[in-house]
Write a protein that binds this DNA or RNA. Structure first.
Length: 490
RNA sequence: GACUUGGUAGCUCAGUCGGUAGAGCAUUACACUUUUAAUGUAAGGGUCCUGGGUUCGAUCCCCAGCCAGGUCACCA
C-alpha cells in the first residue's frame, strides 16, 4: 500500500474521532445539480435561496483561512465552492471543527454534500458560499490528478491498460469517455424505440446452447453437471430467433451478447453485442431501406442531424447508400476477372500471386480473404455489398435469377462490417444440403432447427447489426473497447 | 499465434554511451481571508515489471517470462 493510501486511512480515523461518520447512511436533501445551477445562475443569484448539492472533490485551494473547492456531480459539470470562517457558525467549537475538516481531512476524491448560496467572486466566477458541509464518502485511494485549462492539458489519466482495468476511475476522470457510454445507452434506447413502433417484440433466447450454431467461430465451452454434457456459450442466436418466427411472430429482435473464443483487437471482443432482427414477409431489399431508416432515426434523435464525422470523413446517412456487387467490387479494385463460377484452383493462384495467406481454407474463406485484401480498406463511405456467392452464405436464400448467388447484403462504413442481412433460406431440404456440405459431422448439424424449418418458416428477412462497432463509429472511436465498459483483460 | 514498441514515484513522463535515479502535479509541514494549473518555503516518497546471464558492478547490454499497446493472422 502506498504512503498516500496510509495517510488517507489515518485521516479516516481522525474524522471518526471527531464524531463524523465518513460513510453516512442517511438520505440527503438535494435540490439541484451543478449543470442546472450553471444554466440558471443569474436567476439563482437573484433568488438567494439555499442550494443543496453533492459532488466529488477535484481540487482544493487553501488560501489562509479561506478555501476554494472544486466539485463535480453526476451532471459532469464543475462548480467552485468557497468558504471562509466568517460564513460559518460563530460557535468556536464549530470553527475548530470546520478548520480540521477543510484544511486537514478533506481530500481530492472525497464526496461531499453542501448547503450554500450562489455568488460571484471578484474573478467573476460563479461560486457557492458554503453554509454547511457533510462528508458523504471518504476517498481512500488517491485518484490521479487531472489539471487542465481550456487550452492545454497538463496532467491526465490516459494509460489504456489502467483505464480499462479501473474503468470507474476512467469514468471519473475522463468526461469524454463517460459521454461515449451515455451515447451507447441512447443508441440502444432509440433502436428499441424504433423497433417498438413496428410492434416487433423483444425476446430472450438461450445463451447456453447444446450446439453452438448460426455462425462459424470457436465457442467457449462449459459443462452441465446434471446433463453430464458439454454446453456452449452461444456464438450466435440466429437459429433460435428463426424458430420463434416459425412459432408465429411477425417480427422479433434481441440484443444478443455473443461469445467467441477468439483473440481481441480493435473490432473484436470475446463477448460482444449483436442486434438480430427477423421480420416476416420481407426480403433483403426491404431490409436495406429499413436499416437506413433506423440509422437516420437514431442519429436525428441523438445528434439532431444525420451528418456524422467518422474518422475524418463526413457521412450523411440521408444520402442514398451505395450498392456494390461482391464480384464487381473485387474485380474493380483487383483488376481481376472472377465470378461465382471461378474455380477454387484459380482463387488459390490469385492468393499466391498476391501473398494472401490462406492455409487450408475452404473456398468461402479464400474468397473472403480476397475481398478483404483488395476491397475492405477502400470502402470508406456507407456501402451495401450484395450478390454474395451461395457457398459463403449457408443460411441465405438464393436469388431466383441466379441460384449461385444469394439475397444478401453486408453493410460497411469506414472499412468496418457493421451489419449482415439476408432473405432467410426457408427450404428445409436445401438447408440440410447446405449444412451437410459444410459439416461432414452430422452431430454439429442442428436437427432441431431443421425440424422447425420443416414445420415451415414464412418468407423472412433477418439482419445482425454489430452494436459495439456501430457505437464505436457513431462516437468516432477506432476501438470497440472504448465503448465496452469492462473489456476483457488478461 | 507471429512480428514490433513499451513497463522508472500515486499520476504523466524524463534519464543514466553500465557506477542503484530525476521533474511537474499529488502527498506531508509551515505561511497566506477571492483563488481557479493558486502562490512561497521545506520535507517524505522508488525491488527502475519478474527471473536468469555477461560484468568488479545491471534500471540500462544479452536470454527467458509476465503485462499492455500497435500491425498481421483467426473471428463480426
Amino acid at each position: 500500500m502506498s504512503d498516500q493510501e496510509n495517510i488517507r486511512k489515518r485521516k479516516l480515523k481522525l474524522i471518526q474521532s471527531l464524531g463524523i461518520n465518513p460513510y453516512p447512511t442517511n438520505s440527503i436533501k438535494i435540490n439541484n445539480n451543478i449543470k442546472n445551477i450553471l444554466k440558471n445562475k443569474k436567476k439563482l443569484i437573484n433568488d438567494n435561496k439555499n442550494l443543496y448539492i453533492y459532488g466529488r472533490i477535484f481540487n482544493i485551494r487553501n488560501i489562509g483561512k479561506a478555501s476554494f473547492i472544486d466539485i463535480k456531480d453526476y451532471s459532469d459539470n464543475k462548480i467552485q465552492l468557497y468558504y471562509n470562517l466568517n460564513n460559518l457558525s460563530t460557535k468556536k467549537k464549530n470553527k475548530k471543527y470546520f478548520i480540521y475538516l477543510f484544511k486537514k481531512y478533506l481530500d481530492i476524491g472525497d464526496i461531499i454534500w453542501i448547503k450554500g448560496l450562489l455568488f460571484i467572486t471578484k474573478m467573476s466566477e460563479y461560486t457557492i458560499l458554503i453554509k454547511n458541509i457533510k462528508l458523504l464518502s471518504k476517498c481512500l485511494y488517491p485518484i490521479p490528478i487531472i489539471k487542465k485549462t481550456t487550452k492545454k492539458i497538463y496532467y491526465q489519466f490516459n494509460n489504456i491498460d489502467k483505464r480499462y482495468r479501473m474503468r470507474y476511475l476512467d469514468l471519473i476522470l475522463n468526461p469524454k469517455i463517460k459521454n461515449n457510454f451515455k451515447i451507447r445507452f441512447l443508441i440502444i434506447k432509440y433502436i428499441r424505440n424504433f423497433l417498438y413502433k413496428f410492434n416487433y417484440i423483444e425476446v430472450d433466447t438461450p445463451i447456453l446452447q447444446k450446439i453452438p450454431g448460426g455462425a462459424y467461430a470457436k465457442p467457449f465451452i462449459t459443462y452441465h453437471n446434471k446433463f453430464k454434457k458439454k454446453i456452449y456459450l452461444r456464438i450466435s442466436n440466429e437459429l433460435y430467433l428463426k424458430k420463434l418466427i416459425v412459432g408465429g411472430f411477425k417480427g422479433v429482435f434481441e440484443f444478443s451478447r455473443n461469445f467467441r473464443n477468439e483473440s481481441i483487437d480493435k473490432l473484436h471482443h470475446p463477448e460482444f453485442t449483436i442486434l438480430e432482427i427477423y421480420i416476416i414477409n420481407k426480403n433483403y431489399l426491404w431490409m436495406m431501406n429499413f436499416l437506413q431508416k433506423l440509422l437516420i432515426y437514431i442519429c436525428k434523435k441523438i445528434f439532431k442531424t444525420t451528418i456524422i464525422k467518422i474518422n475524418k470523413k463526413i457521412i450523411n446517412f440521408k444520402k442514398k447508400i451505395k450498392i456494390k456487387k461482391f464480384y464487381s467490387i473485387i474485380n474493380k479494385y483487383s483488376k481481376l476477372n472472377i465470378n461465382e463460377n471461378t474455380s477454387i484452383k484459380t482463387l488459390k493462384k490469385i492468393c499466391k500471386n498476391n501473398k494472401i495467406k490462406i492455409k487450408n481454407y475452404n473456398k468461402d474463406k479464400i474468397l473472403d480473404n480476397i475481398f478483404n485484401f483488395f476491397c475492405k480498406k477502400k470502402i470508406k463511405y456507407p456501402t451495401y455489398i450484395i450478390d454474395y456467392p451461395i457457398f459463403m452464405s449457408p443460411l441465405a436464400k438464393s436469388k431466383t435469377n441466379n441460384k449461385k448467388l444469394v439475397e444478401r447484403f453486408e453493410f460497411y462504413i469506414n472499412s468496418i462490417e457493421i451489419a449482415n442481412a439476408y432473405t432467410e433460406l426457408n427450404d428445409p431440404i436445401e438447408q440440410y444440403k447446405r449444412f451437410k456440405s459444410q459439416n461432414k459431422d452430422k452431430n454439429i448439424i442442428d436437427q432441431d432447427f431443421l425440424k422447425a424449418l420443416k414445420i415451415g418458416l414464412p418468407p423472412t428477412v433477418g439482419i445482425g447489426i454489430g452494436i459495439d462497432r456501430l457505437i464505436a463509429l457513431l462516437t468516432n472511436n477506432l476501438n470497440i473497447q472504448e465503448v465496452i465498459f469492462f473489456p476483457q483483460m488478461k
